[in-house]
Simulated scan of single mutants.
Amino acid sequence: MAEAESENAPTAPPVWPGWLAATAACIRFYSRLPVPELPGETAHMAPDFRLLPRALPFAALLIALPGALVLLGAGLAGLSAPLAAALAVTVLVVTTGAFHEDGLADSADGLFGGWTPERRLEIMKDSRIGSYGTLALGLSLLLRVTAMAAILDGAGAWAGAAAVLIAAAWSRVEGIRVIATLAPARPDGASAAVGRPERAVLPVAYGLSAGIGLVLGVASALPPAGLLIGVGLSALASGWLMRAARRLIGGQTGDIAGACQQLSEITIYLGLAAVLGWGGR
């Protein structure tokens, strides 16, 4: 009887981790940056995404900082905008170990290469890359480099570096929205294992990302219209991908979240580049 009552007792809500510990855990999960184990934590435990993503905007800033600094340095040194952008994107990819790019490639192969949900999920789990994944990666790199170069040409090195940081924070929260909104497509997959964010986490993460965008945008004189258009395009791209994932595989996976991050990052750059190209500040 006691055992039955214990089984039916409500689960205690998780304790909110400290901001420093949550940020460190996010950096470890999303990048290859070395983060020392903090007092009282086990660094190699699987992350608990029920609460952890509230600190993701701060972690995203640190993860993208090397790429932003390379773009800033290359721009101030007088390198051509395309070369500076290519160097920055290279650093961004190396820093994350192509974490999000892998998700984009697997999602493209799976969503467009299979005919049934089961087959699509099987393709997404395959480590080999197909035609759709190759095209998606190539287009992603091309769009990021060219849009970043346009921002650099139109607004300068400081604004370009700020755009990298703004896009890093907002795009990763968009990836978390996928996990928070859709049910896992695989009950035994990685996205199911880490847990779904609590209801309060997503507004906090979006609020922090918006604050980061406002501060950096004003400080670097990025066009507000470009940021608004970029965020709007990001929402449209994320919404399209989530609808496609729900229809084609029955929910989300970690790969879908990674693909969402990539689409969001690209669209934020495109919004800024478009407005700067129109001559708006």
Results as ranks from 00 to 15, higher is better:
142 L>C: 15
143 L>Y: 07
144 R>N: 11
144 R>V: 10
144 R>G: 10
147 A>K: 09
150 A>P: 13
157 A>C: 13
157 A>R: 14
158 W>C: 05
161 A>G: 12
163 A>R: 05
163 A>H: 03
164 V>R: 03
165 L>Q: 10
167 A>C: 10
168 A>G: 13
169 A>V: 03
169 A>H: 11
169 A>M: 07
171 S>A: 15
172 R>C: 00
172 R>T: 01
173 V>G: 04
173 V>W: 04
174 E>Q: 14
174 E>K: 04
176 I>T: 06
181 T>S: 14
181 T>V: 10
181 T>F: 02
182 L>H: 00
184 P>N: 01
185 A>R: 02
187 P>G: 01
188 D>S: 04
189 G>D: 04
189 G>M: 01
192 A>S: 12
192 A>D: 09
193 A>F: 00
194 V>M: 05
195 G>Q: 05
195 G>F: 04
198 E>D: 14
200 A>Q: 14
203 P>R: 02
203 P>L: 01
204 V>Q: 01
205 A>Q: 11
207 G>A: 05
209 S>E: 00
210 A>R: 00
210 A>M: 08
211 G>E: 02
212 I>F: 12
212 I>G: 09
212 I>A: 07
213 G>M: 05
213 G>H: 04
214 L>F: 14
217 G>I: 01
218 V>M: 14
218 V>K: 13
218 V>S: 09
219 A>T: 11
220 S>V: 07
221 A>H: 13
221 A>M: 12
222 L>F: 09
223 P>E: 09
226 G>F: 08
231 V>S: 12
232 G>T: 10
233 L>M: 15
233 L>I: 06
237 A>Y: 10
237 A>T: 13
238 S>D: 09
238 S>R: 15
239 G>S: 11
244 A>N: 05
244 A>S: 14
245 A>C: 08
245 A>L: 07
245 A>R: 12
245 A>H: 13
247 R>K: 15
247 R>W: 13
